[in-house]
Design a protein around this nucleic acid. Structure first.
Lengths: 198, 198
DNA sequence: AGAGAGTGGTTGACAGTGTAAATTTACAGC
DNA sequence: GCTGTAAATTTACACTGTCAACCACTCTCT
């Protein structure tokens, strides 16, 4: 019997490759990254990754998961600093600013999370990917329960998130008009999207 | 002196190429389209386009402009059907539905308008590209003037547009959660983003 | 009319891509 | 040691965008 890869070795290689690839993808984008460049940096042959990934898109998928993890950590770190006495609306706003800050700090990582062109259909997100979504949903539920805002919490959370995402996306695409900057829009957005009241 | 291309011939060729390329890009995405495929369909050699465009990205740019034009026509066509007696808030909602319908009818054309990965920096939009933006700005100004909503019209128009764009983008990326569909979100969005009142 | 020049378009490279297939290497059990 | 098999590498292929050399043609000037 020959040497066989243990589950652990497989995970280790995948993680190593991701660590190399995430920087490349995040700073250069999908097309500009080549398998050969990744493997050169890892010191293995160009075909080795194909033992651990189906193809380039599959590698990209793994890297996107890594980006979700980064985002999750970022949000988690900030949420921990929220005081327990913070009101639900204020909590929503803090969360919103936190989302936007991540998008501005790591624009390509942010974009990768919503990249869609590459795969049909878009891959389903796992539990870890969804982690940053939960604090927002919780805060929205709390705000509705405390009657600070009214409506279906699940819908309201989507609208809040989508609104911020839209601003970020337009900003990143250079599509904000009339000389408006993202900073001009965020605070009004937080107010409007969180129901227009404090 | 040899025969020289007239301005008209240049425009004609560019338009012909765009007509072929727009369908390809819109249905397959940037990477999946090759110059050779475009030129095969046009019946010319692979290098001919390089007399009229700097490179592939430049072709993509022209095609994006074409997408803006389609969007502009779409919006224009719908706006014309609005009654003059339509109130400003109702007008905003009609416009919003109209934007969303375009995004659903031509998802890739819509995405191309906001594609950013390819160029540094993102190309500046010309007057025609901006056409669909004006009705929204006008409607928002009217709504503010009539005191239906309050705030800076330019900011409010951005927020309205960004909010819808965010929902569309999340929908296209398969990122809506909890089984929510875009249809579940649009009407609540129109209400929230247009100030929460009728 | 003929030569020369300068244009648009084509052909034929070339370097680089993802990855399939063939080949070599490395290890477990005899 | 040897052998069978999995892992890794090497080789090869079809395909990409696009540069450079080339061809064909039209116009100007003698």
């Amino acid at each position: 019997m020959p040497r066989e890869l243990t589950e652990n070795q497989i995970d280790t290689f995948r993680a190593e490759l991701c660590a190399v690839a995430v920087d490349l993808f995040v700073e250069r984008g999908y097309e500009a990254v080549t398998i050969r460049e990744i493997t050169r940096r890892m010191g293995c042959s160009a075909m080795t990754p194909y033992r651990y990934f189906a193809n380039k898109a599959d590698i990209f998928d793994a890297v996107r998961s890594e980006c979700f993890a980064r985002f999750g950590e970022w949000v988690h770190g900030e949420v921990e600093r929220f005081s327990d006495h913070t009101g639900p609306i204020e909590r929503l706003r803090l969360l919103g600013r936190c989302y936007v800050r991540f998008a501005l700090a790591e624009p390509r990582a942010y974009r990768m999370m919503f990249e869609v062109e590459r795969m049909h259909p878009p891959p389903v997100l796992n539990e870890i990917d969804l982690e940053p979504w939960h604090p927002l949903l919780e805060a929205t539920r709390a705000a509705v329960e405390s009657r600070a805002i009214a409506g279906d919490p699940e819908v309201l959370a989507h609208l809040y998130w989508a609104g911020l995402h839209g601003i970020i996306a337009l900003h990143q695409a250079g599509r904000l008009q009339l000389g408006k900057s993202i900073d001009d829009l965020i605070e009004p957005a937080l107010e409007l999207f969180s129901g227009g009241r404090r």
